[in-house]
Every structure is written in structure tokens, then in C-alpha cells.
């Protein structure tokens, strides 16, 4: 089995269903924004969204009513301030109530690692003495069988679908990303299905120092979406549009302005064509 290179529209239609647990990952870099927009356009509902840093992409998906649940570890507009749609959903239930399950970065990263490793849980030094214990049901303790030490345990997370953005794929659907690669490899390997959007398809992947290669047979769909991480950045291709992150603070503060902006810029936008 190898990854099929399709349009983003087809890939989302094939892989993402209502009620799925979906992880769009990318740690400030290579955020799969275009894929998030396609999920919004296809009006997926009742998703359980997983992501360390919900960021603008989940602010938009939450505000557009795609999610009923959020598993996360840090929900802010990085370097700017609040995520207003995320806050409005939690503080006021708009547009729909949002159940949250929160971890620390270390805890959620370890949940992906356990999922990718085929283990039922991960063990780490974390959480003790904090109010997250008892508040987040997926935080427990385990006693080391060798030393007797008590440590934190978190269950594996196995999303139905992982969605990431990478710089390149080759024609067979092997994928390479480089720069800050966050937790994307773990998310893809933990998930049942995966979609990778890429800046471009090349004849041969030229291996990069520190690059992460996902072989085609662990990826279900590749879609070519140049600029698919904007307004975040893709190292070697384009920079973060920081002005937009700041503008988003204003757009997202008001429900009507947000809704209008999404209608104009996301719903009205034509799906990105695939040209492998």
C-alpha cells in the first residue's frame, strides 16, 4: 500500500467523517491550515479535535462548529494572545458547547508516542501536585515495578485521522519535512489514517539534515497544496505572516465579524486543486 496523491477535497472526503477523532499537528511550523479549511468547507461535525497547540486552525474549526470535543495542552494565539473562538466556546458554549480534556505538552506528546508505539499508555514525570490531577480523567499514576517510584501515566491516543503539512513528497507519496517537526511523526504513526498536504511534489526527495521522512506506506493520502500552512510558515518556502496572527486577534474577537470573514475567505474559496 502506498499513499494516493489526490486533491485535498477528495482526501478529506475519503478520510474524515463526522464524529471522528482528528489530529491536525504542526508545532507553530507547518500547520495544516488549508486542510483545516477543507474540513470546514465539507461541514464535518462532532469531531474530537486533538492538538498540542490549538492555534488559529482550531480557533476557526471550533468557531465554525466542527468540534464537540478538544484534547489539547496550550490554547493561545502564539506570540499574540488569546484564541477568542476557543474561549467563547468554553466560556459561553458558542457556537456549541466544547468539552475539553487538557494535558501539559509533555503529557500529550507522550500520549502520541504511546499511540505510535502500540503501547496502551506512556509513563512520565509530570502533573504531581497540580490541579490537572483529578480534573483530567486521562491522567493517572503508575508504580515503577523496579524502583517503586510513583510516576504519571497517560493513555495512548489513537486518532482516527492525523493531518499534517510537509514541504515535499515524491511521486510515490514518500513525504519529507524539515525544520521544527514537532510531534507530526508521532501523530501520523499513532493514527488509523493519515493525510499529508505538501508544498510540492519532486522527482526525488533530497534528504535534509534533521529531516523527517514518512514512507509512503504509512501515509494514506497526499495532496499538493502550495502555501497550505499559511499563515504559519514552511521552512524553505515562506515565512510566518505575523501580521495575520495579530489581525486574527481582531477578526476573531467578534462573532459576526468572524463568521463573515470565514464566509468570505474560507467558505467562498474554491478548494485547492491538486496538480501532482
Amino acid at each position: 500500500m502506498s499513499a494516493a496523491i489526490t486533491s485535498l477535497q477528495e482526501a478529506v472526503a475519503d478520510l474524515v467523517s463526522d464524529g471522528d477523532c482528528v489530529a491536525l499537528e504542526g508545532f507553530t511550523h507547518l500547520i495544516p491550515m488549508a486542510a483545516g479549511h477543507e474540513i470546514i468547507r465539507q461541514q464535518r461535525r462532532d469531531l474530537a479535535l486533538v492538538r498540542l497547540t490549538p492555534d488559529l486552525v482550531y480557533d476557526q474549526m471550533i468557531g465554525m462548529g466542527c468540534a464537540s470535543r478538544l484534547v489539547f495542552s496550550w490554547g493561545g494565539n502564539p506570540g499574540v494572545g488569546s484564541l477568542h473562538r476557543f474561549r467563547d466556546a468554553i466560556e459561553h458554549g458558542w457556537p456549541a458547547p466544547l468539552a475539553v480534556e487538557e494535558h501539559s505538552h509533555a503529557g500529550l506528546a507522550n500520549r502520541y508516542v504511546a499511540g505510535a508505539s502500540g503501547l496502551p499508555f506512556a509513563v512520565l514525570r509530570a502533573y504531581r501536585g497540580t490541579d490537572l490531577v483529578g480534573r483530567t480523567a486521562s491522567i493517572a499514576t503508575v508504580t515503577c515495578p523496579f524502583t517503586g517510584e510513583e510516576l504519571a501515566a497517560v493513555p495512548a491516543i489513537r486518532p482516527d485521522v492525523a493531518v499534517i503539512h510537509a514541504q515535499q513528497a515524491d511521486r510515490q507519496g514518500n513525504v519529507q519535512m524539515w525544520g521544527i517537526t514537532g510531534v507530526q511523526k508521532e501523530a501520523v504513526l499513532a493514527a488509523q489514517r493519515s493525510l499529508v498536504t505538501v508544498e510540492e511534489v519532486v522527482d526525488t526527495l533530497e534528504l535534509r539534515p534533521g529531516g523527517v521522512v514518512l514512507p509512503s506506506w504509512v501515509v494514506n493520502r497526499v495532496a499538493v497544496v502550495p502555501g497550505g500552512a499559511r499563515p504559519s510558515y514552511a521552512s524553505g518556502y515562506y515565512h510566518r505572516d505575523n501580521d495575520f496572527y495579530e489581525t486574527w486577534d481582531t477578526i476573531s474577537r467578534d462573532r459576526d465579524r468572524f463568521t463573515q470573514w470565514m464566509a468570505d475567505h474560507v467558505l467562498a474559496a474554491s478548494p485547492v486543486a491538486s496538480t501532482p
Binding site: L52, P78, G79, A106, G182, V183, Y245
Partner: peptide
Amino acid sequence: LSIGDGELADTADSVVSVPEIF
């Protein structure tokens, strides 16, 4: 601009995954 700014990676001695850094 953020903890994931590209310049951090470009100027780093090493770039590792998030699970690894923690």
C-alpha cells in the same frame, strides 16, 4: 515571534522533536 520561529531552528545546534525535548 513565537517559540517555533523559523530562525530558532535555523540557528540551533540541534533541532529535536517535541516528545524528545520534553
